[in-house]
Design a protein around this nucleic acid. Sequence first.
DNA 1: TATTTGCGCAACCTTTAGGTTGCATATATA
DNA 2: TATATATGCAACCTAAAGGTTGCGCAAATA
Lengths: 104, 104
Amino acid sequence: MKQDIFHAIADPTRRAILTLVAIQALTPNAMAEKFDMTRQAVSKHIKVLHECDLIKPVQSGRDIYYHFNAKRMQEFDHWLAQFRQSWETQFNQLDQLLTTLKEQ
Amino acid sequence: MKQDIFHAIADPTRRAILTLVAIQALTPNAMAEKFDMTRQAVSKHIKVLHECDLIKPVQSGRDIYYHFNAKRMQEFDHWLAQFRQSWETQFNQLDQLLTTLKEQ
DNA sequence: TATTTGCGCAACCTTTAGGTTGCATATATA
DNA sequence: TATATATGCAACCTAAAGGTTGCGCAAATA
């Protein structure tokens, strides 16, 4: 079941996991040490991130290192693109307002 | 209660609302016409978006026009920034790999 | 003034999310 | 080989999410 990446990043623990693995690939146990919950709870979050391809497992003996998948993360950037024009417009309008106020 | 923007954008209906109001400010009724659910359900989504400041109400008689707040959406952009370096690195590595393969 | 219309709030219901514990399996190690 | 360790899966529980209907209120309109 391919999960929604927006749902995936909605959870703060999952965002923290992404931040961690973006720096360095980690095993589930290594991740679990960083959080105040059981390893199984962390594993559930890993599963969600894995199912939507934000992280990728690399097996090494009995260890599994999960790697950050930048390509997938970039989809957020693409989604945001539709709003960039809006915020540039809004900020220009704010600039103009401030300039006008300053001139008075 | 200030809501989390990550939670706010996790719902597909709310993302659709954001796309709509980024183009043009709309009233709850106007939004509700676009979706296959009751006005009240849409209103709940509006409430979530409003509580986390992604949209701003402007009263006009008994109508309320909700405007997109680009500034708030930009926070999502800032969060993404921490991963930009990762994906540039990964893409460069991919480029190098492809170049190496081509040379062989 | 009486009525319609736009909106928000509250109560309720069902599904999903996120945590727990327990167990099975595969690999590493004594 | 026996044991310890890393991981994933399943069952279970509670809280929250997302939908519904019904209601109240304020503004527009007949």
